[in-house]
Computed example of a mutant assay.
Amino acid sequence: MSSTTKFGYARVSTDDQRLDLQRDALRAAGCSRIFEDKVSGSRVSRPGLDLALSHLRSGDTLVIWRLDRLGRTTHQLVGLLEQFERDDIKLQSLQDGIDPSTALGRAMLQIGAVFAEMERNLIRERTKAGLSAARARGRLGGRRPKLDADAIDTARRLMKDPDLTMGEIAERLKVDRATLYRALGRHQQKG
């Protein structure tokens, strides 16, 4: 590969979100390959980013849609910027318009990272406050279980058939095997 290869990195926080907008922008920016994650930016383990970083060589450019796609904490971003500087890797953020190859650009990235981290902390605080208020009114937060009591009863009836595996039962109920085991365990604890 040439010393001026552009690699793209796209990330969304949940499986419900789509990567199309970021993919299109990264392709338009000339990225030869795009690496992706569907995981929170605050997570330490981001396999797509790790793979992208393993492909970067001196002179390459990592292109991202926006700064917060690369990392959510100042510590993460500063660490990556220091690594890029050591390894002579350029960073291009399409929406932020910041050039980290200059002292002012690096400072702007760090300031941007501080604000992104502050925004994330504010969202976390508001979410916790909202959940506390809902609990005070007797409501529980979180996702609804994928399997209700009827589905769990169906699973238990199917489990009596020695010819069916747990995988087949989960498939019939349209859930993963791990989801089925969790639901059975939760239902057993309640009962």
Score class of each variant (00 low, 15 high):
91 L>N: 04
27 R>T: 15
129 A>K: 10
122 L>P: 06
188 Q>F: 10
157 R>P: 00
146 K>I: 05
90 K>I: 09
38 K>D: 01
40 S>G: 09
123 I>W: 06
39 V>G: 13
2 S>I: 10
165 T>V: 12
68 D>C: 04
191 G>L: 05
67 L>Y: 10
164 L>C: 12
47 P>L: 00
1 M>G: 09
29 A>H: 03
131 L>T: 07
67 L>V: 14
173 L>R: 02
180 L>M: 00
72 R>G: 10
142 G>A: 01
7 F>A: 13
176 D>K: 08
41 G>M: 01
111 I>W: 05
185 G>L: 08
27 R>N: 10
69 R>T: 00
177 R>S: 06
127 T>M: 07
186 R>E: 08
17 Q>T: 08
187 H>T: 02
152 I>G: 00
126 R>C: 11
16 D>N: 15
90 K>F: 13
125 E>H: 10
66 R>S: 14
106 R>W: 00
27 R>Y: 08
179 T>E: 12
10 A>T: 07
90 K>V: 07
57 R>M: 06
145 P>T: 13
105 G>F: 07
130 G>K: 08
128 K>Q: 15
108 M>Y: 00
84 F>K: 04
65 W>G: 14
102 T>G: 09
117 E>K: 15
103 A>L: 06
126 R>T: 04
167 G>C: 04
110 Q>G: 12
91 L>Q: 01
126 R>M: 08
80 L>V: 03
113 A>T: 03
164 L>R: 13
163 D>N: 14
70 L>Q: 06
144 R>E: 10
167 G>F: 01
176 D>E: 07
77 L>D: 01
52 A>R: 09
49 L>V: 06
26 L>D: 06
119 E>H: 02
125 E>W: 07
151 A>F: 01
128 K>P: 14
24 D>E: 14
24 D>N: 13
152 I>S: 00
119 E>N: 01
66 R>K: 15
151 A>S: 00
150 D>I: 00
46 R>Y: 11
25 A>F: 05
101 S>I: 01
140 L>I: 11
115 F>D: 12
114 V>A: 12
42 S>A: 14
128 K>G: 14
82 E>K: 08
32 S>A: 13
133 A>G: 14
44 V>E: 13
91 L>W: 01
45 S>W: 11
140 L>A: 13
17 Q>A: 06
141 G>A: 12
87 D>H: 04
